[in-house]
Design a protein around this nucleic acid. Structure first.
Lengths: 186, 186
DNA sequence: GCAAACCAATTGCATTTTGCAATCGGTTGC
DNA sequence: GCAACCGATTGCAAAATGCAATTGGTTTGC
């Protein structure tokens, strides 16, 4: 408990980190959307974050050790934001959060397919995804081909829903949603 | 998406429910602390919530379907707040949140022992805890004796730490904390 | 029977955070 | 050369938060 914390409770301290309406949205877009640049995050999210709030949160998340910032070699003013291990380990929390929201909140089908696939993939898929993020953001070696990534799998599911057809690897929609019997509890 | 949501994304909608500094603190105190009354929540938490904010959040959580309110038969002005199934299913999220905070944030030992025990207990313990909460808040039948509850187990761990001695069922402290090798990923 | 403690809030007010629109100085593509 | 793009910053109104005091009523202790 370095400075000015309300308590040393793990849940409280976690809330002090991302207990606001935007921090996790930004991390979601970086993790699931692969966004690395200010403009991508500004224009890419459905929730339309304001630029001053985005700037504030990026700064804050850097101070907290969740993100790092580096100059983009291809463009003198471009900055590349990277996830740290601290942020990458949020994947299971985001998976649970998505699963919970999918059961209890009025989610839209096309936006919840990713959460559904991630829930069905379970911890093995989360671990694979975290390894991919480590490769992408921390430079860790990886042997996953670009088309077999978890992100590509989730994206394919999304696009299949948007296109109105089921992808080959997907079960029928009525088998996917079973909030009671198949309730996620990892 | 009934009214005024930023997007139908499950993570976004979840954040709209408890993406603030107090809602999850209140639910934490109800779930782990067994608090059911306004005064308990007001005076019981370390984070010292203000009474107007507590009142506002209780109202809000009721409107969202996370809590219900009933008159306490033993006291004409006393209100009893109960968790709904929607709130009870937050247990895995809180467990992950606590586990994450314990690894990455400056938690205090005595306040993180509960998170640690809950992490080690894993999904079976979370399920047991949720069943206990259903019994306590929803009146569901249960055959767990009062001294064998998950909450009592967590509380015993906490008190053992505070008293400065390890309880019988607890492994040595150096075995408990292994943030890398034993990282939680349920 | 009566005061003190307790009950779930509510009120007023100052401070902080948020959301929005416009704009900044600089860089790149064409 | 100039439009589009880059990561921000500024100004300002609105909303949320934090704090202290208070409300109208109930129960407890004696």
């Amino acid at each position: 408990m370095s400075i000015d914390h309300r308590s040393g409770c793990p849940i409280n301290l976690s809330l002090e980190v991302f207990g606001d309406r935007w921090s996790l949205i930004i991390l979601r877009d970086m993790i699931f959307g692969g966004k690395r640049h200010f403009r991508d995050l500004l224009n890419g999210s459905l929730e339309r974050i304001a630029s001053n709030i985005l700037a504030d949160r990026l700064k804050r998340l850097m101070e907290l050790g969740m993100l790092t910032r580096a100059d983009d070699p291809t463009h003198k003013q471009k900055a590349i934001y990277s996830l740290t291990e601290m942020a990458i380990t949020l994947v299971p929390i985001l998976a649970h959060l998505g699963a919970w929201g999918r059961v209890w909140l009025p989610v839209s089908e096309e936006l919840s397919i990713r959460a559904e696939l991630l829930e069905k993939g379970g911890p093995p898929m989360w671990e694979k995804f975290m390894d991919e993020l480590r490769h992408e953001h921390l430079g860790t070696p990886s042997d996953t081909p670009p088309d077999a990534t978890v992100r590509a799998t989730l994206q394919a599911g999304y696009e299949a829903i948007v296109a109105g057809k089921a992808p080959g690897a997907m079960p029928a929609p009525d088998q996917l949603i079973s909030p009671i019997a198949g309730r996620l509890c990892y």
